[in-house]
Nucleic acid binder design. Sequence first.
DNA 1: CTGTGTGAAGGAGTTCACAGCG
DNA 2: CGCTGTGAACTCCTTCACACAG
Lengths: 216, 216
Amino acid sequence: MLKNQTIPKATVKRLPLYYRYLRILFDSGKQKVSSKELSEAVKVDSATIRRDFSYFGELGKRGYGYDVEKLLDFFAKTLNDDRLTNVALVGVGNLGNALLKYHFHQSNSIRISAAFDVREDIVGKIVDGIPVYPISDMEEQIRIQQIDIAILTVPADKGQENAEKLVAAGIKGIMNFTPARLTVSSDILVQNVDLTNELQTLIYFLNHYKKEQTGE
Amino acid sequence: MLKNQTIPKATVKRLPLYYRYLRILFDSGKQKVSSKELSEAVKVDSATIRRDFSYFGELGKRGYGYDVEKLLDFFAKTLNDDRLTNVALVGVGNLGNALLKYHFHQSNSIRISAAFDVREDIVGKIVDGIPVYPISDMEEQIRIQQIDIAILTVPADKGQENAEKLVAAGIKGIMNFTPARLTVSSDILVQNVDLTNELQTLIYFLNHYKKEQTGE
DNA sequence: CTGTGTGAAGGAGTTCACAGCG
DNA sequence: CGCTGTGAACTCCTTCACACAG
């Protein structure tokens, strides 16, 4: 299988899963791992795992498995986890606050380095080590800190306007917790995380499918 | 297309999207809508929308479009949103707290009706109208309140054990915010919501795909 | 004439099953 | 001999394009 080919989306979504479990294995001192072992831990079929890995070249050794450290290093580079990624957060409400305290960098190099809000009682404060700026400082801070990803946790009816401000400020990717479906230029990546949606879907499956797996 | 067939997963995941937008249309007094209009609002191809709807029978009128109220009612029933669904929450930490205050029932009938935690300083309190019980009360409360869905927001290393307690208490579906991949019997539905995962995926796409859409 | 519903084609992802490398 | 890497089959989903109902 050729390297440098574009990796299927479905594969990319599983990479962080593999990466996390490899770190656990590494920390526990394990040196090798087979696709079968990995499969049981991350609940992904072992053939799918081998296929996923194969897109990146021949990462394993036949009859042996995969070298844990080598694979961990490889994924760290692939996922850009060997360098710091600063992220902005817009909307320090209930959810925004929780995310400020959510340590994405458990052993990852992702961190929220700036938050923005309109509320006067919170602007200027430092929440959990992260400064909260007024929206008017967005463009400046995003430029200075070279941020290109933002988490959007504003009320639904403020979603679109804040997305536009973010794009104007130079953001390239938005993790959108708003139920609004954002309209942005096609070179901006939007990852929707819609909690109500997720719950309603789960309820539907529960009532109609019974005994089956939902997947992601 | 036959009714009563099983609806594709991909379709089910979009139903809440349609449902939400139909309510907006209804509230604004609109009476009919075409798949094209819907398509622009929810960012789903219009052919996909028509296909999705067709699984449920002939919901529209040719040359006219869809009747907003009729469709809204239909989806309310389909998504069980015409009756109350109680949900439990386990782990009242940062994220758990935010979810207690997150109004799933903006105009939905989903509500968190019981929370559970181990921390003595919070057990017995009422957070945002929701009582926080000790874990030992889990089985009783879940039975009494006939809850069959739980949101799991405990630390990663407590995920599996709490999932097992939930299953023992009779839960049928778990929305898992823990990075742990739960091992549960196959009749239990697990919906994983992995925020770090989501962010890392977004970062990967940003660095490798450029100018493209991520989808969900 | 308009916009749905759908057959047919196309594309994406998963899984089987096994050749073959270490 | 064991486990990877992968051709081939398969399943699932999306999109095209158009017959046809209102």
